[in-house]
Amino acid sequence: MKGNVIKYERDNIDTDVIIPGQYLKIHDYAELALHAMEGLDPNFHSKVKEGDFILSGRNFGCGSSREHAPIALSHSGIKAVLALSFARIFYRNAVDGAFLLPIEIEMDAYSNISEGDEIDIDISNNTIKNLTKKQTYKMKPFSEIIGKIIESGGLFKYKPI
């Protein structure tokens, strides 16, 4: 999975800035996507391209349980969020609806990957290749359940046991 990185160098990016409350009444996902990240980066919609990744710090997606957050990012074209850690509800929402991949990274990936870098995420080997900088980093493997839900294509396609 290849794409370019949009980097937000901070911790605690909350779901209120990912999709502000006033847009939670919107039922149409394409319209919702127009307002993704609006609370933090009003230029997000004009710069994001299909297949891009977001890179950020700790506790990404903290706050409200709104599934609108991964939906808005996903329908903007974001395929994965790479972060030092995630808040639990955002993490499960991203995976349950098969909206995007929440990928936990280590400090070396966080510090070395820059805005605009092209990276290649290889989930089967838990590695991230930085094609721009010719570096390779490890990603934390998914837990068993999360891996299975992702493989199945979301919570409702997951057939356990």
Partner: peptide, 26 residues
């Protein structure tokens, strides 16, 4: 409940937590 502040009910010794909309459907 599809709301993160469902943790409130824990004051009664209730295991309570917020979930997303896919989990609400589940």
């Amino acid at each position: 409940c599809g709301d993160s502040h469902t943790s409130t009910h824990g004051a009664f010794g209730t295991l309570s937590f917020g979930i997303g909309t896919s989990e609400v459907e589940h």
